[in-house]
């Protein structure tokens, strides 16, 4: 009798502790950085809206959303990789590579749209797979491997084409401008991608594995998480996101440019860091990344409207990064 009471006490205590831990985990994920980043988005947009008539034009606002799609795609992939404790410096080059190949093969043929979209995504996934396999099989530093991949792909892209190439069918270009009422189709499509990414990270076994691996690979392994497989999947997904972002650029620009997506690997990391995902992995949410992407999008749009010099833009971006990382909470002190 006594023992069963003790047991039920213990199980009550256990479930209470679980509930407490769940709330703790929730509040830890919804920490101040997410509120801060959205407050900043609202503040900057409001400021820009008051200051500039062109900014608050509804057409411009949907444009801002549409312009964040490419960065958003890359930042989603980057978030997955960084949550798992890695980094992908090659995502922008994966975007460039897969898109360039697609652009070269198009030849203005409308019937090729679907197969080539599939091919582009497959190339992205394959390059991500390559990153993941090198990193997990030979214990190489993810930063340096993907940085090396950056260099290799850069060279290969220039070998494929040294100037803008490809004849893109009009039906493909129409994807960019397709509208439902006043809203470009691609905006709700992208919103659903964000929701899918959020569900993937917060509601699935794979999402929990990402957090576990990023938090501590050792503990994750002891908890029966397949660490290399989780990492490889993260890189594959990042490659897929990169390819998708690149294919969207292709619909916008209508030409395969061997210089496209320049600097996006860094911007995607900045968006992730701004959104409060720990750069050493395991903490933060994709919701924060969305905030980071929106902030960068609004600021870029403001820069354009105000015609800020390129060097000043670069200075400000660098300063923002340095300030963000200087206030960054590390795993050790956290």
């Amino acid at each position: 009798m006594a023992s069963s009471v003790a047991r039920s006490d213990a199980s009550v205590a256990l479930s209470e502790r679980r509930a407490a831990r769940r709330i703790g985990a929730w509040s830890q994920r919804m920490d101040g950085s997410i509120l801060f980043i959205y407050a900043l988005v609202v503040l900057v947009s409001a400021g820009a809206g008051v200051y500039s008539e062109r900014f608050r034009d509804p057409g411009n606002l949907t444009n801002v959303l549409r312009q964040t799609i490419v960065l958003g795609m890359l930042a989603i992939g980057q978030s997955l990789v960084i949550l798992a404790g890695g980094i992908d410096m090659s995502n922008a080059l994966i975007a460039r590579m897969s898109t360039l190949i697609v652009a070269v093969l198009f030849g203005g043929d409308e019937s090729l749209i679907l197969p080539l979209l599939a091919l582009g995504m497959a190339i992205g996934a394959a390059l991500g797979l390559l990153n993941g396999l090198i990193i997990t099989r030979v214990y190489a530093s993810p930063f340096i491997v993907t940085f090396g991949m950056f260099g290799i792909l850069n060279g290969v892209c220039l070998a494929i084409a040294s100037s803008p190439v490809g004849k893109i069918p009009a039906a493909y270009l129409a994807l960019y401008d397709a509208r439902v009422g006043p809203v470009p189709m691609c905006v709700p499509a992208m919103a659903s991608v964000w929701v899918a990414a959020w569900l993937l990270t917060s509601r699935t076994r794979f999402g929990r594995a990402l957090y576990a691996v990023g938090g501590s690979p050792r503990v994750a392994r002891l908890a029966a998480v397949h660490v290399p497989r989780t990492l490889v999947w993260a890189y594959v997904l990042s490659g897929l996101c990169g390819a998708a972002g690149g294919l969207f650029i292709l619909a916008r620009s209508g030409v395969g440019d061997p210089k496209m997506a320049e600097g996006l690997e860094f911007q995607s990391i900045v968006a992730v860091a701004l959104g409060g995902i720990s750069l050493s992995g395991g903490r933060g949410t994709i919701v924060g990344t969305l905030g980071g992407v929106l902030l960068l999008g609004v600021v870029a749009n403001m820069f354009n409207i105000l015609q800020v010099d390129a060097f000043l833009q670069q200075l400000i971006l660098g300063l923002v990064v340095l300030i963000t990382v200087a206030t960054y909470r590390s795993a050790r002190t956290g």
């Binding site: 030979v138 190489a140 530093s141 340096i144 940085f147 090396g148 991949m149 260099g151 792909l153 060279g155």
Partner: peptide, 23 residues
């Protein structure tokens, strides 16, 4: 532009060897 590819290949191969060695 093949210089870029050479740099990348050297970097990745070297990283693979040293990663293995460190491990």
């Amino acid at each position: 532009y093949w210089q870029l590819a050479v740099q990348g290949v050297v970097l990745v191969v070297a990283t693979a060897i040293q990663g293995m060695r460190g491990h």
